[in-house]
Simulated assay, not measured.
Amino acid sequence: MKLNTSVLDGLRFLLALWVVCGHFYIIIGGTNLFNIPFVSSLLQQPIIAVNGFMIITGFLMTYHYILREEKEPFLEASTGVKFILRRLFRLYPIYFLAIIAAFFLVENMYLLRKEILEFFTGSSITVFGKESKLETPTLVGMFSHLLFIHGLIPHEDSTILSVAWSLSLEMQFYVIFPIIFAVLFRKQASLRFSVITVISVVVSVLSLNYLKSYFDMPAALFFRMPVFILGMMVAAAALKKLRWRFVALNGCIILAVEDRLTIILSIGLIFLMFYENLKLVLPRSIYSIVSLIGGLLSKKVSKFGADISYSLYLMHMIIMPFIIKFFIDLNYSKLLTAGLSFVSLLVITITLSYVLYLYIEKPFIAMGKRVVATLPRPKRTQVEISTDFSGTEPLN
């Protein structure tokens, strides 16, 4: 089966832009300011884009873990250590900078957000019907964020940097991923996936109301685990470790409890990765359009977008209030203020994100590879990943 992973570059960039645009729209008042049918609904739910990131994370982690299985046996503890080290060198330097910057700016950030809301809507009530909140940073908040555990501490999940809740969630996934992988990709893989799918969906549904009582953005892994599993199963099917009909069945169980936009996004992500296999099935006109979209998502500009998407995601909420306030002070109309603020936000954050990618992310990624390369390579003593759908025999 043909698989086009390069479209994920463009998709990651689009998802990051969705988050940026959504937060900008919410901060200036959302539908309390103006309403665009359907578009406003998308913009006011940037969490849907984060769900897309989680599916892509589950896919890519599993995909590359399987591809490296020859060199890094998945049952070896050193493989898990190498995996986590790679992720830390990739994610932590920019994350550290973002958290430290937000710690010193968070009080002003939220004061400005309240002022911005009042300027555009005449009220400090957000689009979600709540009073625009204020935050006072604490050392507990800072250190819990720096350790990625803020998502597990009630009322600390978004006290320093609101978008960082998802980083706590993803880091929880990274830490236990090697164990999950080793458990799932053994004999009877299909049965194991079915069990964890059902359990994770049930736990996610039952825990939602409880978590919302203590967290602004629920960031405990068991709440979002089904979405990661969906990505894992798609990667396994792409590499012929699971059968597609099995993935479709379990995928339906997972998506049955998700909202409509997450369902559409999930199906769209998967479709764009595998659309080339439907050339003989789709009408020529539809296939041509989809192929054009897939090609655009795979271009060099999309690779650039993927490279900066992480910094773009983390940094935009720190910069945004100050940019909008700058244009408010120029006493322009609301519409012109919003337009100039938005364009400036994109230019500044994209430029900053690219600089951070070149001078921080890339060097630390390279450093991580060098560190991992110095670790001893284990002897291959394990059974290989099962490719049989019934899970009765390992691959020889």
Results as ranks from 00 to 15, higher is better:
Tyr210Arg: 10
Leu211Arg: 02
Lys212Glu: 14
Lys212Phe: 10
Ser213Leu: 13
Tyr214Met: 12
Tyr214Pro: 00
Tyr214Gly: 03
Phe215Gln: 03
Asp216Gln: 13
Asp216Phe: 11
Asp216Leu: 14
Asp216Pro: 00
Met217Leu: 10
Pro218Gln: 07
Pro218Tyr: 07
Ala219Pro: 00
Phe223Gln: 09
Phe223Tyr: 15
Met225Ala: 13
Pro226Gly: 07
Pro226Glu: 07
Pro226Arg: 04
Val227Cys: 06
Val227Phe: 06
Phe228Tyr: 14
Phe228Ser: 05
Ile229Tyr: 04
Leu230Ser: 05
Met232Val: 06
Met233Asn: 01
Met233Tyr: 02
Met233Thr: 05
Met233Trp: 03
Ala235Cys: 04
Ala237Leu: 03
Ala237Pro: 04
Ala238Pro: 00
Lys240Val: 02
Lys240Leu: 09
Lys240Thr: 10
Lys241Asn: 14
Leu242Ser: 06
Arg243Phe: 03
Arg243Ile: 00
Phe246Thr: 13
Ala248Phe: 13
Ala248Val: 15
Asn250Pro: 03
Gly251His: 03
Cys252Val: 14
Ile254Lys: 03
Ile254Gln: 04
Ile254Cys: 02
Leu255Asn: 06
Ala256Met: 12
Ala256Tyr: 10
Val257Met: 14
Val257Tyr: 13
Arg260His: 11
Leu261Lys: 14
Thr262Gln: 03
Ile263Asn: 13
Leu265Asn: 07
Ser266Cys: 04
Ile270Phe: 11
Phe271Cys: 10
Phe271Asp: 11
Leu272Lys: 07
Leu272Phe: 12
Met273Ser: 08
Met273Leu: 12
Phe274Thr: 15
Tyr275Asp: 03
Glu276Val: 06
Asn277Asp: 15
Asn277Ala: 11
Leu278Trp: 00
Leu282His: 05
Leu282Val: 04
Pro283Phe: 00
Arg284Ile: 09
Ile286Phe: 14
Tyr287Asp: 04
Ser288Gln: 14
Ile289Ser: 11
Ile289Val: 13
Val290Asp: 01
Ser291Gly: 02
Ser291Phe: 03
Leu292Glu: 09
Leu292Gln: 10
Leu292Ala: 11
Ile293Glu: 02
Ile293His: 06
Ile293Gln: 01
Ile293Cys: 05
Gly294Met: 07
Gly295Met: 00
Gly295Asn: 15
Leu297Phe: 10
Leu297Ser: 02
Ser298Asp: 01
Lys299His: 10
Lys300Cys: 06
Ser302Glu: 08
Phe304Tyr: 14
Gly305Pro: 03
Ala306Phe: 10
Asp307Val: 04
Asp307Arg: 13
Ser309Tyr: 03
Ser311Met: 03
Ser311Val: 08
Ser311Glu: 09
Leu312Tyr: 01
Tyr313Trp: 02
Tyr313Phe: 15
Met315Ala: 11
His316Gln: 10
Met317Gln: 14
Met317His: 07
Pro321His: 09
Pro321Asn: 09
Phe322Pro: 07
Ile323Lys: 08
Ile323His: 07
Phe326Asp: 08
Phe327Lys: 00
Ile328Arg: 09
Asp329Cys: 06
Leu330Thr: 11
Asn331His: 15
Asn331Glu: 15
Tyr332Trp: 13
Tyr332Asp: 11
Tyr332Ala: 08
Leu335Asp: 13
Leu335Ile: 14
Thr337Ser: 07
